[in-house]
């Protein structure tokens, strides 16, 4: 039998969850307000600020760029992160211990420092185009998700299953796709989602790497807020939240949301 919680503790938690959810409700309200300035509660209901988002070329362009970068960076990170996670678990004894530490480093380095360093050493010194440097930067910040999430799942995988398949004559690559991959499927989906969301929302790395004509959505939002204080930003924010809701629905359907709390 569980001990009942103190009523004050429950009241405290209620206040905290109100504090967590209220600002998001306020954005939603401000986005549908039929006014030219940001206000809550909304005065009148209108969808015109959502239309306005898509009428503005800067937002249209950066939404497309952000999606492209997120898909490319997440794809690259999984493409090189999955074999690395596999190697780290399958050949744990053969590989040096420090190798797994390499993949923790991107978390230790502040993102803003990485962004600035990439600008200096890669974009300017190596004269790489803006878009490519953005993809590189985003791949670096999402790689730890790919490696660590998949690695955690692989550490529970029984590699004798794989050996059994190989000893029965299955070729190594086919074994990987039919035996190993299905067993870590949920980890791959989770890694993809975490990486995608991280990339879409990134500010600190993109900040230094965006250049003339090429920008990402969060950077465009920051630039817009500095000049205007209209409901357009609230509408873009709602669109980003809808994307998050969509992603969470996918997680719920495939893994169950409590997965994320682990």
């Amino acid at each position: 039998m569980k001990q009942p919680l103190h009523p004050l503790l429950i009241a405290f938690a209620v206040v905290v969850f109100f504090f967590l959810v209220a600002p998001l409700v306020i954005i939603l309200g401000a986005a549908v307000s039929d006014t030219t300035f940001l206000t809550f509660p909304p005065r009148g209901i209108s969808g015109r600020w959502f239309v306005k988002v898509f009428e503005m070329a800067a937002f249209r362009r950066t939404i497309v760029t952000s999606l492209q970068i997120a898909f490319l960076a997440t794809g690259f990170a999984l493409l090189i992160g999955l074999p690395a996670a596999y190697a780290l678990n399958r050949f744990r004894i053969q590989l040096p211990h420090w190798l797994s530490t390499v993949f923790v480093l991107p978390i230790l380095v502040p993102e803003i420092v990485l962004g600035f360093s990439l600008l200096k050493s890669v974009q300017v010194a190596a004269d790489l185009p803006v878009f490519s440097t953005l993809v590189i930067g985003h791949t670096l910040i999402v790689l730890p998700y790919a490696v660590r999430v998949i690695s955690a799942s692989l550490s529970a995988f029984d590699f004798s299953m794989e050996e059994a398949a190989v000893s029965l004559g299955s070729p190594p690559l086919k074994t990987f796709f039919t035996i190993v991959l299905p067993n870590v499927r949920s980890a791959v989906i989770a890694a993809f989602i975490l990486a995608f969301i991280t990339s879409i929302n990134d500010v600190s790395v993109s900040l230094f790497l965006t250049g003339p004509g090429v920008s990402t959505l969060p950077i465009q939002i920051l630039a817009h807020v500095e000049q205007f204080f209209d409901p357009v930003i609230a509408s873009v924010s709602v669109l980003l939240m809808l994307l998050t809701v969509g992603v969470m629905a996918v997680v719920e359907l495939t893994l169950g949301l409590t997965f994320l709390a682990k």
């Binding site: 929302n201 939002i221 204080f229 924010s237 809701v245």
Partner: peptide, 18 residues
């Protein structure tokens, strides 16, 4: 989880309105 998956810019912007 939901606020956590909502971007830093969006969540900071909310406080600008408040």
């Amino acid at each position: 989880v939901f606020p956590l998956l909502t971007g830093v810019v969006v969540r900071s912007f909310a406080w600008l309105i408040i």
